[in-house]
């Protein structure tokens, strides 16, 4: 019995006694549903309409567990005298979950968002052959696919938002011609979110054409956009009543929340 054995033994007793008084870590799974983290990989769901049978997923799959059969169909010309078009029709789409290793490469590879992760995981079978999910079963999982989680604060804008925020080709020349202050990086791809409301581009503005009825407009307008940057709006209103909006007379832009306003000139944005 060397030195330090007795304190060690007492410490051991203390540790076990302490954990006796604490909450257990047991997950009572069948009785209590587990709290799965977001983006849990349970099963792969298929939106059949989005699939073009391009075979990218099947080719990328490291396990070769995706089976796709398709044939070509001829579509009649849409205009008289036009050319008939061909289209892929999906006959079979199956994923063998007894082979799948849940790497998710097929979902990453799909260019048309036909494949999604669903957090459902309770599809064990007594016969391994039943783990081959055909397209109807894969399609049934779509109902369990959660909406995409919100972006983390500070993350890059989604690609479609960045693309929509880009000024159209006609407006691109306006900046140099006006000869104003340099753009504050507004709308540039890769700009991060959350760098203050004042620096944001005024790209989402469905509510009102003039500053006078701005309050009413924000009441009826998209509620997600309105409370985001009241400070910016107020700053703009103080200087001048949004000429861009008045000029275009934006009935076309109304209701389309991602529509960029074409005539927002760069010097205005710089002043914001």
């Amino acid at each position: 019995m060397g030195d330090g054995i007795l304190p060690g033994l007492v410490k051991g007793l203390g540790t076990t006694a302490r954990s006796l008084t604490r909450r257990t870590h047991t997950a009572e799974y069948p009785d209590v549903a587990p709290a799965l983290p977001p983006r849990s990989r349970g099963v792969i769901a298929l939106t059949e309409e989005n699939c073009t049978s391009c075979m990218l997923c099947a080719r990328e799959c490291p396990d070769w567990c995706i089976y796709i059969d398709s044939h070509k169909e001829e579509l009649p010309p849409t205009t008289p005298g036009g050319r008939a078009r061909q289209r892929n029709v999906l006959d079979r789409f199956a994923i063998d979950f007894s082979l799948c290793m849940y790497c998710g490469i097929c979902i990453e590879a799909c260019p048309f968002d036909a494949l999604h992760w669903s957090p459902e995981f309770e599809y064990a079978e007594t016969d391994i052959r039943d783990l081959l999910h055909e397209k109807d079963r894969l399609g049934a999982w779509m109902a369990t696919v959660p909406p995409p989680p919100a972006l983390d604060p500070g993350s890059v804008d989604p690609a479609e938002v960045t693309a929509a925020a880009k000024p159209p080709r006609g407006a691109a020349g306006a900046g140099p011609r006006a000869g104003s202050a340099p753009r504050a990086g507004a709308g540039a791809p890769g700009r991060t979110r959350g760098d203050g409301p004042a620096a944001r581009p005024t790209r989402v503005r469905p509510e009102s054409p003039a500053g006078s009825d701005r309050a009413a407009g924000s009441l009826q307008g998209a509620s997600a956009a309105a409370p985001e940057r009241p400070a910016a709006d107020r700053a703009v209103d103080a200087t001048k009543p949004m000429p861009a909006l008045g000029d275009t007379g934006s009935p076309a832009a109304e209701g389309d929340s991602t529509q960029v306003l074409p005539e927002v000139t760069p010097d205005e944005e710089g002043r914001e």
């Binding site: 076990t16 954990s19 006796l20 604490r22 257990t24 047991t26 009572e28």
Partner: peptide, 12 residues
């Protein structure tokens, strides 16, 4: 007792 000392629930 053993289960709870090990952070488990034991037979349930």
């Amino acid at each position: 007792v053993m289960a709870h000392m090990q952070g488990r629930l034991g037979p349930m």
